[in-house]
Design a binder for these strands. Structure first.
Lengths: 358, 358
DNA sequence: GTGAAAGCGCTAACAT
DNA sequence: ATGTTAGCGCTTTCAC
């Protein structure tokens, strides 16, 4: 590794002159600057960030803590943030919590050790106390989920409203037995979504068929598929369904496809998120589209601004930004059957038998 | 930020004793160690990585350079790598090149400045010379794509074979006018895929209808859709299609869906990659499934091993690992029409008119 | 078993 | 316009 010392030795200058030349200090002659840059280029000099940080320079690394980047929801976030940070000369450290407090703590500890400039975090249900403590001294903002143990700064979506709208849509179509499959209510967003469902159902004077995740179980595709099949095995299955997470939606769509359920005849479905493929699922999935890309960008630029301006002693007022989703109406929702719903053919042990389109 | 100095002052010890206690040095008494750890815990001490690195400690950060993490191909890679690195006490710095040499250079420069322990890179077509230079002094491995300017170590898939198998499948079904839509041949993987197609076509004695990307154009969904529509506008449109990237596959699927083309009656399709949703697209997409998760893990653990053992003066033999894909047969491929293909209804300005499934 | 001091690469205050 | 010096937080001699 080439250092300023090497360059100095090569030109018979002092390290400080080299440092200043590289920093384009006004006191250095144009000629010296030129020669320094030339040698630096030749030797492939790259300034050592570690040394710079020792001298008090702030890191240009932003930590991103998400449950799982392979979830397209979060990969969109990672992409948007990486782009935003890159265009502001910052880098993104990718950390996965796997929705485990222990992992989350390890990741945050690593970020603290790296003295990162800031952190964007989608927290787990109950972050470890040390996570709060470690983040206390680091500018950070919560994304999507919001827990009270961390900073009050938050960028998220109106979870309650989003599910409320989805449910109202089904009520408006005439459905009276509407089910909801969501994730564990440990997680605040999931709780808000469930509340949105309940409120919409209550406002319509209906009885909800709710299939939420068992406490502690993650919001997975398997859970979506299993719960759907359980709902269908009941005496009076629902005629409509609202899903409360992308993964659950995925599982439900796969199960409906595998089991040959005809949508919207046998069941109306409103999905969560608008992932690639949702548009071409069966008759097209009616779903809630969420502005994840824009949300992540807004969150990123806010954090950068916050980092630059919080040094002032001004009391930082809690900042929250709520974005809303949009109901995208496609073919998966329609009026309920006029006659008592004819039981759809749903097997608990599904046989692979794709529905041929013609 | 708490430092060893703070702890030392608190216990009236020297910084060296504190440092040793924290490092569990054998010369320090059990009691002192205990007290030091206690105070460290109380003060929320986190060792400063920058300072450690100044003392020669190697970084525990691995750079990951991909074109775009929102591409589920690469988000799978990012996830697998983050997991692997996390379980080996390493972190992942996420860098997006956007398939631009300039961005790639900036990102690699940042990684070099951060003195990262290693780099996993999906290189652009022609990386800047400085990228080679910068990476020369950093253990790195190429993933998927392979360019000669970088290290010979590479983990990828057998691109030629994968497309060869896909094409043979269609030939075997009796197709004689088979098209291929791939990305720009600037990128070695894309070139290999195209060659795989050509070889399979030549072996069958057929005339290929090839729709590759224009040079320099990225392998995008839009390109897939546009090229598909162009192919269909020709006098004798193909009866079968092979796609050469996930994005192109996505675009093709969307266009076929929007334009109401009946698959496999009007066109047989073999996709690339097995993304969520491909299974339920129309009659189920026949496609090449690729072991991206496993590939990324293998790549990650190899890099870690390489980092730990390259210090030995042993000449490092070039290491390459080729994984193969699997043809997943679903409903989107079938025999060609016996009679001259009835022109499918494809509009250049498609009207949204989803194909209703019944 | 513990302390003092040096030094990693860089920058900034203080000389010339 | 350039050189000298000190010090960031940590580890690691070398001393006691």
């Amino acid at each position: 590794m080439t250092t300023t010392k090497d360059i100095a030795a090569r030109l018979d200058l002092s390290v400080s002159t080299v440092g200043r030349a590289l920093a384009d200090d006004h006191r250095i002659s144009a000629e010296t600057k030129f020669r320094v840059h030339q040698v630096a280029e030749e030797l492939g000099y790259v300034a050592n960030r570690a040394a710079r940080m020792m001298r008090g320079a702030r890191s240009t690394v932003i930590g991103l803590v998400v449950p799982d980047v392979s979830n397209s929801f979060y990969s969109t976030v990672a992409h948007a943030l990486a782009e935003t940070m890159s265009s502001h000369d910052h880098q993104v450290m990718l950390c996965e919590s796997g929705d485990s407090r222990q992992n989350e703590l390890r990741q945050v500890r690593d970020l603290a050790a790296a003295q990162v400039a800031g952190v964007v975090i989608v927290p787990t249900a109950k972050p470890h106390h040390d996570v709060s403590r470690l983040l206390r001294s680091t500018p950070h903002v919560q994304l999507l989920r919001k827990v009270s143990a961390l900073s009050p700064h938050w960028f998220g979506i109106d979870d309650h409203n989003v599910i409320h709208v989805a449910t109202r849509h089904l009520v408006g179509l005439g459905h009276r037995r509407i089910a909801y499959i969501g994730g564990t209510v440990d997680i605040p967003t999931a709780a808000a979504r469930l509340a949105g469902f309940h409120d919409a159902i209550a406002a319509a004077g209906l009885r909800p068929d709710v299939g939420i995740a068992e406490l502690g179980s993650p919001s997975s595709a398997a859970h979506g598929a299993d719960t759907l099949r359980r709902l269908f095995r009941e005496r009076r299955p629902p005629t409509a369904l609202v899903t409360g997470s992308v993964q659950i939606t995925r599982g439900v769509l796969a199960a409906l496809h595998e089991d040959g359920v005809t949508v919207p005849r046998d069941l109306s479905v409103v999905g969560f998120g608008d992932e690639p493929g949702f548009a071409w699922w069966g008759p097209g999935l009616t779903t809630i589209s969420l502005p994840m890309h824009e949300l992540a960008i807004a969150c990123g630029v806010w954090l950068l601004h916050h980092i630059d301006h919080q040094t002032q002693e001004t009391a930082q007022a809690p900042f929250t930004s709520v974005s809303s989703g949009t109901l995208v109406e496609r073919g998966s929702t329609g009026p309920p059957p006029a006659a008592p719903a004819s039981r759809a053919t749903v097997r608990s042990r599904p046989v692979r038998q794709p529905v041929r389109q013609r």
